[in-house]
């Protein structure tokens, strides 16, 4: 455990060494951003709309008291989406989508000697392979989370529109009532940290793959599982620190 942590930290240090040529690295960063950002947009859009709608319906179902205004449903949906569902659930899904792809890509490069080829050429392989992924992760995750929040609200609106329990007007009023900007800060901090966790853990698992195709699959699985555990752990830590 301690040995793995040490190797993880050393790998991160190597990953952020001065690049051989900034231009080549920049192109890689752009490629990874497109892959992580645009490539994940579809799944994020789908899950966010459904989560937003489901949260709204379930909240409305539980608030049956005539003493509680219906607009509270909007407020609870907003806080749930911003604080938990958009950053955390999206990151868990992205760990499966992006993380496994990163771990298996780097793992395959390891077992097919492509990483050896980079090292022979004098390229800092961790820097070339991992740093663009980390940069793409920490920049694209917050953007994806913002998209997720907005679509979650849209899902809630659709749920209100298609049912009679809460009106869309009450929902919209609830979204803006009692808004505390700190939840956006917490959300963005979570998105950046989760982006870092997924990209670094999965890259680490891929980079130290040994063996063949079977081990590449195992590395990808390990990367996703460890990322998910760390995401949930840091979710608690960040919530405790900021709220």
């Amino acid at each position: 455990m301690i040995q793995s942590l040490g190797r993880y930290i050393l790998l991160l240090r190597l990953s952020f060494r001065k690049p051989e040529k900034f231009q080549v690295y920049w192109a890689e960063v752009m490629r990874e951003m497109v892959s992580a950002g645009i490539g994940s947009l579809g799944i994020i859009m789908i899950i966010s709309v459904f989560i937003g709608a489901a949260v709204t319906i379930q909240t409305a179902f539980q608030l049956i008291s005539p003493l509680i205004p219906k607009s509270v449903v909007g407020g609870i949906t907003r806080d749930s989406m911003v604080l938990e569902f958009s950053p955390t659930i999206s990151s868990l899904v992205l760990a499966g989508r992006i993380g496994s792809s990163m771990a298996s890509q780097i793992g395959t490069m390891r077992v097919t000697e492509q990483i050896d080829a980079l090292e022979i050429m004098g390229v800092n392989a961790p820097g070339y392979l991992i740093s663009p992924k980390v940069i793409a992760g920490v920049t694209m995750f917050p953007l994806l989370v913002i998209v997720s929040i907005l679509l979650g609200f849209a899902g809630g609106y659709i749920a209100c529109f298609s049912s009679s329990e809460v009106t869309t007007h009450d929902f919209m009023v609830g979204l803006s009532d009692g808004f505390n900007p700190v939840i956006i800060t917490v959300c963005m901090v979570k998105a950046v940290i989760f982006g870092f966790i997924i990209t670094t853990i999965c890259s680490y698992q891929g980079f130290y793959t040994k063996g063949g195709a079977l081990e590449v699959g195992q590395s990808a699985t390990r990367g996703v599982v460890y990322s998910c555990v760390m995401i949930l752990m840091f979710d608690l830590i960040i919530s405790r620190l900021f709220l």
């Binding site: 395959t108 000697e113 080829a117 090292e119 050429m121 004098g122 800092n124």
Partner: peptide, 23 residues
């Protein structure tokens, strides 16, 4: 060290058993 090796490495070419071309 890694940095000192780079000038020599740029004079090294290697063909791997499985070619190791970047997919």
């Amino acid at each position: 060290g890694f940095e000192q090796r780079v000038p020599i490495r740029t004079h090294i070419g290697m063909l791997f058993q499985n070619s190791a071309l970047f997919d």
